[in-house]
Nucleic acid binder design. Structure first.
Lengths: 319, 319
DNA sequence: TTGTATGCGTTATCAG
DNA sequence: CTGATAACGCATACAA
């Protein structure tokens, strides 16, 4: 592998001059510049980028932490992140965690070890305290509301959205409402749960903990939820489903079993994934691509900001 | 930032000893080892990994080139890649290309510049010649059959599979068969097209170029295909659809428009994506996760091999 | 078991 | 406009 010292010898100049030419710095005579360029051509020289990283202390790499990529929510978020990273001329280092804290730690350590210039955590299993520990080593952006501090975030007010959706159903006459969620433990999930119980308090509705279904990610989970709902007495008359994919599973199962939507069961999905449009599912549009873009922006500009992104109810045929 | 020289001073040992401790090398006395460890704790020392990369000439990073991540085909492939990379203790650098050759070039250059130890190209827009140019800089694995040479590949025999599916439909009485595909230009696409025309030759069937629909990726594309099919006279009686997502779009549209499947239109999807199970779509199962795993394996073991992965027809309700 | 010296390839500083 | 030299931080051959 030829390096800039070799080039310098070949071109009869110093390494400094070579470096200048390579980085388009001014103050290099045409003559020497051409000599260097000629040597570059002749040797098919290419920089060893690790040396650049070491010397500069930067890598133009952003870490992205997410549990899995084969779910529309994260796939769309990642799409936005990738688009914006491209515009900023940065690349992405992927940490697929399956919600394992050890892998999140690994990502945080990469920040500390300077392999990445910043980190985007799309969803986390570890504590905020732990994340804060790593803040001195580089900017971190999250997808959940973070009050104050040095962490940036781009988030949805899930409490408000959930409450709005519940009220919407209530106005349509629903009082037995359940919901489906992925994890119970995330910040966003807890906000939703709080909205759920506050709603019940507000309207003095009976509590039905069995109307809450967790571990809902895929179509099959929707199928499973429906089979459980069918066995209930009384069953919920409406479901808030925090992924359109799961909502689609429920809708398709209902079709198969001649359960009428929205008459027997009303559904509101989340994310406005492509399948929701296809199946005419009423859903909450969450601009995931935009959120992804903003996360990159926050990490790279290093402005510590908490940006709320608004979600919109899209009325279609399942309510 | 404290470095190993600082640690050496603090612990009263040489940098070599520090390095030994840090990398769990043998031949270090407990005493000195503890002294070093103590200094590590005290300073909250962490390696600068870029220095390691430079020194070793390796990064434990694998580049992954794919057009987009928000499509089940690539999402599942990526899932397999991520799983296996984790087992090999390597990380992934993502190149989302949108089939732009310039971005593929960038990935190849990262190999040359030693930012990545190897490259997996899930789908390419650039020429094989170009890829071969970069082979001297590190292992490259592709998702298409590569005859000989130094490139590894994990692939499906798309010609055979397509032909089998066509024959399957033929035996069911179909003679007017169309197909939907993403790009027309990829190697896999060309193999499929060849199978398509060879099939027509074999059974002396009339040619219907209008039965071929390209740019089919999403549900909406399936919808679009169906609306075009409806206007045809005669329309195809069966469609091979190279993504279950598109197939799902067609199936859902047919349901809406009371077009009976498989009586009026038979459908065979591809990939056995989750939605295919939900909608009872007959499909070709392609073990994408397994393929992803194998690609990583090939890149890291550097055995140059071409591994064919077999696909299986899953008979469900749309034929 | 330990330490010295050197290499890895680039960028940055500063003097000329 | 140019160049010598010092970082950057770690790994490792070799010597002891």
């Amino acid at each position: 592998m030829t390096n800039i010292r070799d080039l310098a010898k070949m071109a009869g100049v110093s390494v400094t001059t070579v470096s200048r030419v390579l980085n388009n710095h001014p103050y290099v005579s045409e003559e020497k510049k051409n000599a260097v360029l000629k040597a570059v051509k002749a040797t098919r020289y290419h920089k060893n980028i690790n040396a650049v990283h070491l010397s500069k202390g930067k890598t133009k790499l952003i870490g992205v932490v997410l549990p899995f990529t084969d779910h529309p929510y994260f796939a769309l978020l990642l799409k936005g992140i990738a688009k914006q990273a491209l515009e900023y001329n940065h690349k992405l280092l992927l940490f697929q965690t399956d919600y394992m804290e050890s892998r999140e730690t690994e990502a945080l350590q990469m920040l500390q070890q300077k392999q990445i210039d910043g980190l985007i955590i799309c969803s986390r299993a570890c504590s905020m305290r732990k994340i804060e520990e790593y803040l001195p080593f580089g900017p971190i952006a999250l997808c959940e509301c973070v009050k104050g501090g040095e962490i940036s975030s781009t988030y949805i007010d899930h409490y408000k959205i959930f409450m709005d959706a519940l009220e919407f159903l209530y106005r349509k006459g629903h009082t037995k409402i359940g919901y489906c969620i992925g994890r119970k433990s995330g910040t966003n999930s807890r906000n939703r749960d709080k909205a759920y119980w506050d709603f019940h308090e507000k309207y003095h509705l009976p509590h039905h903990p069995e109307y809450i279904f967790d571990q809902c990610y895929d179509y099959e989970d929707g199928e499973r939820v429906l089979s459980r709902v069918k066995e209930m007495d009384p069953p919920p008359s409406a479901l808030l489903v925090t992924s359109d994919q799961v909502a689609a599973g429920i809708v398709i199962s209902c079709n198969k079993q001649q359960i009428s939507i929205p008459d027997e069961l009303a559904i509101i999905g989340f994310d406005n994934e492509p399948i929701a449009g296809m199946l005419n599912i009423t859903t909450i549009d969450i601009p995931l691509v935009e959120m992804g873009r903003n996360l990159v922006h926050q990490v790279l500009t290093k402005e510590i900001k908490n940006k709320e992104i608004s979600a919109t109810l899209i009325e279609r045929g399942t309510v």
